[in-house]
Structures are given as C-alpha cells and as structure tokens.
C-alpha cells in the first residue's frame, strides 16, 4: 500500500455531477470515433511506437549521410557495382531522390516489420495484459473493437511511411541540392511536380502495407501472446520475402503480398506505368478482405479466457 492512497469515500460523499442510477444515455453514433481516437492516442503515446518510428526516421538519415560521405570526392553513389536501393545514384543531383531511396530501402523489411509488431500486438497484446476482457465488458463490441484496431494499424502504416518520407525530405534538403528532376523515362519535371509524386508514392507505399496489416491482425486474434503474434507476423514476412527470390516459385510469387511492393517506382515514369501499381493495390485489397474477414470470424466467436 502506498501513501498515495487515501481512504475510500463514505456514503453520501459522491459528487453531484454523477448521473442518477438508470440514466444511461443512448449510444451516440459518433461513439466509435471516441474509441478510435482513444486507441490512436494510446498507440502513438506508447514508448514502443515512438521507438519504432525513431528507427524508421534514422534510416533516411543514415542513407543520406552515407551517400554524402561516399560522394565527397565527386564519384557517384553506388557507382562501383550499381548496388544499393533504387534511385540512390540520383541523390547527389537532387535531394528529393532521398525520399524515393529511403522508401525503397525501408519497404522490404523495416516498414513491414514495424507494422507486424503493431498489428500482431493489437488484439493479442490486449489479451495478454487482460485488458481485452475489460474492453469487451465495457462493452466495446467485438466487431467495433476489431475495426478500431485495424483502422489504428492502417493509421500507423501511413504515419510510419510519412515519417520515413519527411525525414528523407529534410535530410535531402539539408545535404543535397533541390530542383527539377529527371524521371526514369528521361523527361524533366518541376520540383513541385516531383514533390507531388513523392507524396503519392508515400501513399502508395502506405497502401502496400495494408495486406500485412490485415495478416498481422488475423494472427493477433489467434493467440493470447502478443510476443508470439508479433514474431509470427515478422517471421511470415521474412519467409515470404525469401520465397519471392526463388525462381522456381514464380507461379506462386504474384500472390505474395510483397511481390509488387517496389512497383511504386513506376510512378516516376512519364507517363506513369500503371499495371504493376494496380496489381499491387488489388493484391493488398485481396489480403485485407481475406484476412480481415478471417480475423472477424475468429474474433467474434472466440472464447475470451485471458
């Protein structure tokens, strides 16, 4: 017992602002947004979330510094073997390319890993802490809670992507010149147009993560251990990324959620080459539909014993 506690109040000391018994309000249609707002605030105030975002912000900073150091003598970045993420060679000409490079560098692993942690923990973490039972008897409603969780994970996808993009833009502006840029097709576009495309690319990257977000949420409904759900989601991500590199599996690869991820580069063509972008968004919608439904079917019928 701590000294911070004081004896409980005795009868008759209840403040008058507490409503009389029986005066229970009808639910407001906007109530779901109250829960969503609380969920967003709770998620983004967590130290763990901030640490993940910090790691993501560090990637463009490190890439920018590395390119700056490597090109001090006037040589081009990644020039030796042509290795490195997409667009890295153009960074020295235009800092805006650091945005595209940073997104290409984080999309295969860092971004989906962060999503896997947040999505995997969404339900399983609440079950693990026991807070799930109190949310359900509040009563939050199982479908609403699941939707709130998915919306929050999607918001995290967007915020995480924007953190990478904005950190890269600031770093690019500090270290390299800005100005007109050359598309992959060789045409020149204005800086403002380039900035618009950078934002569009960030949105497409965020949308690319909705598939793994739904998958992570589904896994999260299967277990009472947040750690297990996070590890399974990230493990699946790594497995799929490896399988996507094996040529003998090319018949399956178009169905891997990560297969079209790097298609966002096609937005830098003039005119934009839409085929793979549409494939990617369609595939993400399919994953979100299938695993979202599976998560709903599981979560609305399971016994909550934790």
């Amino acid at each position: 017992m701590s000294r911070a506690e004081t004896p409980m109040r005795q009868a008759g000391a209840e403040p008058p602002e507490v409503a009389a018994p029986g005066a229970v309000r009808a639910p407001s249609p906007l109530w779901t947004f109250g829960l969503l707002r609380n969920e967003l605030v709770t998620t983004f105030r967590r130290w763990r979330t901030l640490a993940l975002l910090g790691v993501l912000a560090a990637v463009p900073v490190l890439v920018g510094i590395a390119v700056k150091i490597e090109t001090r003598d006037g040589s081009s970045a990644g020039g030796g073997g042509g290795a490195g993420p997409a667009f890295i060679a153009q960074i020295t000409n235009n800092g805006l390319f650091l945005v595209f490079t940073a997104l290409a560098a984080t999309l295969p692993f860092f971004l989906p890993m962060a999503i896997g942690v947040v999505a995997g923990d969404a339900i399983a973490g609440e079950a693990n802490a026991g807070t799930l039972r109190y949310l359900l008897v509040a009563p939050a409603g199982r479908s609403r809670l699941l939707l709130t969780k998915y919306a929050t994970v999607m918001a995290f996808c967007l915020v995480a992507t924007l953190v990478v993009a904005v950190a890269a833009l600031i770093m690019g502006a500090l270290l390299f010149p800005l100005g007109e840029l050359t598309t992959i097709s060789g045409t020149r576009i204005s800086f403002a147009d380039g900035l618009g495309r950078a934002l569009l690319i960030a949105l497409v990257v965020a949308a690319s993560l909705t598939g793994i977000a739904a998958l992570g949420l589904f896994i999260s409904t299967l277990t009472n251990s947040g750690i297990a759900a996070m590890a399974t989601t990230v493990g699946l991500l790594i497995t799929v990324q490896i399988l996507d590199q094996i040529p003998q599996l090319h018949a399956l690869q178009p169905y891997f959620f990560s297969h079209y991820w790097l298609s966002f580069a096609d937005l830098m063509r003039e005119p934009v080459y839409w085929d793979n972008l549409v494939n990617n968004l369609g595939l993400q919608a399919l994953y979100a539909g299938v695993f979202g439904s599976a998560a709903w079917a599981r979560f609305t019928t399971r016994d909550v014993t934790a």
């Binding site: 403040p15 507490v18 309000r25 949310l135 509040a138 009563p139 939050a140």
Partner: peptide, 26 residues
C-alpha cells in the same frame, strides 16, 4: 480508456466521472 470503450458513456462528463470514481476508491 475503459470509459471510451462504453458506447453509453457521455464523453462530456467523462473526466468528471473518472475523477469521481478515482475519488471513491481513494
């Protein structure tokens, strides 16, 4: 947070009710 999960809880009185509940249990 628990109060936000209750669809019938009035957000306008939320802080007052939370303070009253905390007070009641010391």
């Amino acid at each position: 947070r628990y109060d936000a999960a209750d669809p019938t809880a009035d957000p306008r009185t939320r802080r007052a009710r939370v303070a009253a509940a905390l007070d009641r249990v010391g």
